[in-house]
Amino acid sequence: MSILVVAEHDNATVKGATLNTIAAAQKIGGEITLLVAGQGCADAAAAAAKIAGVAKVLVADNTAYAHQLAENIGLLVAELGKGYQYVLTPATSNGKNFMPRVAALLDVGQISEIIEVVSPDTFKRPIYAGNIIATVQSSDTIKVITVRTTGFDPVAAEGGSAAIEAVAVAKDAGVSSFVKEELAKSDRPELTAANIVVSGGRGMQNGDNFKLLYTLADKLGAAVGASRAAVDAGFVPNDMQVGQTGKIVAPDLYIAVGISGAIQHLAGMKDSKTIVAINKDPDAPIFQVADYGLVADLFEAVPELEKSI
């Protein structure tokens, strides 16, 4: 079997999500080629070549791929993908953006956000906000798949020594251009990669109060997340939203503070190993998934928790 994995990277380094995706590819079985498409991405390609289990690295270094514009990357990956039986990428906002274009250009279906490889043509994926797990089988000759990273333990970032090959294909659809990006800067770990996540909801009341969670998080080496309600209310930026339509996390410890536990929020965190809920309402649905529930006013409990660890 031949598998093309499209790497998630920032031109300098390969993002962790790529390692989980390669793990999924290994479960399918076959020779794995990793594509690094970007601009000035030689460092990312060099890092890619070291990843365990990668047979070959393709590098498409071109201005057209500078900002991962879906129209251009889609054309490139569809062109290269013709030579493979599988095309995989992580289900990040970037992967979700370009991958369906690849599937449509290849005239095949896409299987979104797999969490398990049952056999080379059969996969499990959550639907209905994770309330249902579907087992799906694809008869397409090229299987286009996005991978939910929490479903697969990452392969080692070191240990491989793949050959690097340049790809000369330059595809510029000429319909889109990058203007700007406002990326959240934080010294805390990335939400989707952190071992501990502390999340706040509407119960936090305002953005200022999130400082309570930041202090706690820094003590724990944790990332900070939020519910949709907290983001919609403007307490915190959108990149912190955990849930069905936000980020999917599965840390060792998830602490939900002032979050009621709507199904859309649970969809993003209920695979965490240990869940703690702090909520003043003893009937809040979050307690149904919490390993440890504390019925308390968060404004008393959180500072106390921070002091006692």
Binding site: G130, I132, I133, T135, I275, L294
Partner: peptide, 20 residues
């Protein structure tokens, strides 16, 4: 369509937790 749903099932249940 070339993707067939073979079966659907509920997700694994979390075991009941406790209140501290």
């Amino acid at each position: 369509g070339r993707v067939k749903t073979l079966k659907v099932e509920p997700p694994a249940e979390r075991k009941a937790g406790i209140k501290v």
